[in-house]
Simulated assay, not measured.
Amino acid sequence: MRAWNRPLVLFTGAMILLVPLCAAGLLLDPRALGGAPIWAKPLKFSISFVLYAPTLAWMVSLVRADRAHRVASGAATVVAVASTVEMVAIVGQVLRGRASHFDVATPFDTAVWAVMGVSIAVLWVANLVIAVVLLRERSLTPSVAWGVRLGLLVSLLGMAVAFLMTGPSGAQVAAAQAGDGMPAVGAHAVGVPDGGPGLALLGWSTTGGDLRIGHFVGLHGLQVVPLVALGLLLLVGRVPALRSELVRARLVMVAAAAWTGLTLLLTWQALRGQPLFAPDALTLLAAGGLVVGTMLAVSAVLARAPRPVVREAVAA
């Protein structure tokens, strides 16, 4: 294992310092924006980056070959720079009392949102490069290798959900056609305006769909899937079936498929304008199918696991 990518480590340290500052802002700054405390967004983003950046730095450290490591490390540095740009924009807009996302009310706000859009796209491509490098890495045990690879791929899917938020909503288009202008382009919520009733701190809509839910769940597949792989390794001594590397690798694949299915399910639910805790029968049916399918897949993998050899005592 190589040293962790220094720019990502430094960025993680900056985000750790930013978390209490944003928490203080929540307590001391009474301003609200879009129906939520104005410091809630930078707090959520800084906490998310505290989880995301060191995970990615660890993954890059797993690459052994010199040339491949240089490529992955370069992409990780790009991630650190793009993430820094995004956080500077978010905090800067909070200090100005303006929205960082979707705000095109003034030329300056439009420029900030354009810079953020470019940084998000660059971030996605850099993560894809790291994923491709890790797909070619052969030094890891199969279960850990697939945990890292599939965690990155699920995370890329979660990031891609964010692109669904950037197009103008029907209400925004209607307002523009009516001559009221379009001060914002894009929205988190589906079927209801942004800024309505939402979950505490998270802000996820409780009256309509919210694309941030699928985005959040998919993004943190980066941690969940590798943790499944590492957890299976810890259980090897207690569960005989897990002594097989093939079994552990297959279970990691099942976990990745289940997390992918959950991300898609939550995104589909949001696109249909449904609140997270008010699913209709079709959503519940799909969720049940996902649970049953995952359980059957796990059972099938364990059923095909090699049986431990039992040696019978032979009388002397």
Rank of each mutant, 00 (worst) to 15 (best):
residue 1 M to T: 11
residue 6 R to V: 14
residue 9 V to K: 04
residue 29 D to Y: 06
residue 29 D to V: 05
residue 30 P to R: 12
residue 37 P to K: 04
residue 38 I to T: 08
residue 40 A to W: 03
residue 47 I to D: 13
residue 50 V to K: 07
residue 61 S to M: 05
residue 64 R to T: 10
residue 67 R to K: 07
residue 79 V to C: 14
residue 85 V to K: 02
residue 90 I to N: 06
residue 94 V to F: 08
residue 94 V to R: 14
residue 99 A to G: 02
residue 103 D to M: 10
residue 104 V to G: 01
residue 113 W to R: 02
residue 114 A to V: 10
residue 120 I to Y: 08
residue 121 A to R: 06
residue 127 N to A: 05
residue 130 I to R: 06
residue 131 A to N: 00
residue 136 R to P: 00
residue 144 V to F: 13
residue 145 A to V: 00
residue 150 L to P: 02
residue 151 G to I: 00
residue 156 L to Q: 12
residue 166 T to E: 10
residue 167 G to I: 09
residue 173 V to P: 02
residue 174 A to Y: 08
residue 175 A to Y: 09
residue 176 A to C: 04
residue 183 P to L: 11
residue 185 V to F: 09
residue 189 A to T: 13
residue 190 V to A: 04
residue 192 V to M: 11
residue 213 I to G: 00
residue 234 L to T: 12
residue 236 V to D: 04
residue 236 V to Q: 12
residue 241 A to Q: 14
residue 246 L to V: 13
residue 247 V to G: 04
residue 248 R to G: 07
residue 261 G to T: 07
residue 262 L to Q: 08
residue 263 T to Q: 03
residue 264 L to F: 09
residue 269 Q to F: 01
residue 278 A to F: 07
residue 278 A to S: 14
residue 280 D to A: 02
residue 281 A to P: 00
residue 283 T to Q: 02
residue 284 L to W: 02
residue 287 A to P: 03
residue 291 V to E: 06
residue 296 L to C: 12
residue 298 V to L: 11
residue 305 A to W: 06
residue 308 P to Q: 08
residue 311 R to N: 11
residue 315 A to H: 12
